[in-house]
């Protein structure tokens, strides 16, 4: 279980992370979503005892990160967003080194290494030099490395970044396997749909602040009371733009000039929407099409982060 209270990181007067409060239950997968620079890696680095927080505290399985960082390191398996590997070391030796770093004896290490390589589908690379492995393979090897001391909590910072679609699917399968083993997993990404399928709960972070938190469904619902409406106009857009912008329930109107389209967010219910269309026709707007756009998680994410930016 992970508990985070008032976690804050300041660089000068800039908040990289502002008053983060979270509770992640044991055995669940928590997805951390946010645009570049939102503060995901900052949060993970603090949890991995690599970065000192400006304020706040966090506990991993009840162990305080500031009071007992050494014990925290035994509880977590951490995978950074960027990492390197040692030259001239074979995959087996790579894992062996980290196994020794956690105090495992040679016998335990020799038993574990084949199993871990099997888990991440790298059995055939056991005797290859790690610096010559492909990026995706290094990533999987790094995941195996993070598992060597059998930690109950995994902190994975964009484990799928830089992977091709196939490798992403493989990575997801490995993570689902780990979830089935009962591990608590924190995973970050800036691609929401990627996380939605395997996470129990999601947190959306923007500019250092947690702006949405809950089950995947609840986040989707919360954000989908606004719909995107697209209207195709025959003739100049200007009149249509003024008309729609006058409606208080319309926001963020955009025009696509060359395709004669205006698009906007609409807050009203179905009744209101009907009225809007009737009025538009009555005013004599040459409407060719009036449709509600399908929104997926990607749009939801774009919407949330856009909203927070304009605050």
């Amino acid at each position: 279980m992970i508990e985070i209270k008032g976690l804050t990181k300041k660089y000068g007067s800039f908040y990289a992370l502002k008053d983060l409060n979270l509770k992640i239950e044991e055995g669940t997968v928590f997805g951390f979503v946010g645009a570049n620079g939102a503060g995901k890696s900052t949060t993970f680095s603090i949890l991995a005892t690599l970065l000192q927080p400006t304020a706040g505290e966090a506990w991993i399985n009840g162990v305080s990160i500031s009071q007992n960082p050494h014990e925290v390191r035994r509880q977590i398996g951490y995978m950074p967003d960027f990492f390197g590997v040692y030259d001239q070391l074979r995959a087996e030796e790579y894992l062996d080194f980290y196994g020794a770093s956690y105090g495992l004896n040679p016998k335990q290490r020799m038993e574990l290494i084949p199993k871990l390589l099997e888990l991440v589908n790298l059995t055939n690379k056991r005797y290859d030099y790690v610096d010559l492995l492909s990026r995706g393979m290094k990533q999987r090897l790094c995941l195996a490395r993070a598992l060597i001391h059998n930690p109950s909590v995994l902190i994975l910072d964009e484990p799928a970044s830089g992977l091709d679609p196939r490798a992403r699917v493989e990575m997801r399968e490995i993570l689902l396997e780990l979830k089935a083993m009962g591990k608590t997993i924190l995973i970050s990404s800036h691609i929401l749909p990627e996380l939605a399928e395997m996470c129990d709960t999601l947190g959306v972070i923007d500019s250092g602040e947690l702006i949405a938190h809950g089950s995947v469904q609840s986040i989707q619902e919360k954000l989908q009371n606004e719909k995107v409406i697209r209207v195709k106009i025959a003739g100049p857009l200007k009149v249509a733009v003024t008309f729609f912008e006058n409606d208080p329930q319309v926001s963020r109107l955009t025009q696509i000039q060359d395709r004669q389209i205006v698009e906007f967010l609409y807050k009203g219910n179905d009744e209101d929407q009907l009225d809007l269309l009737r009025n538009a026709m009555a005013t004599g707007l040459p409407i060719l099409a009036f449709s509600e756009q399908e929104t997926d998680l990607e749009d939801v994410f774009m919407e949330i982060t856009k909203g927070a930016e304009s605050l």
Partner: peptide, 14 residues
Amino acid sequence: EKQTLNILLTTAQS
């Protein structure tokens, strides 16, 4: 510089 330090520092070595 080679970005191996972070991982090393999160291990249980003192």
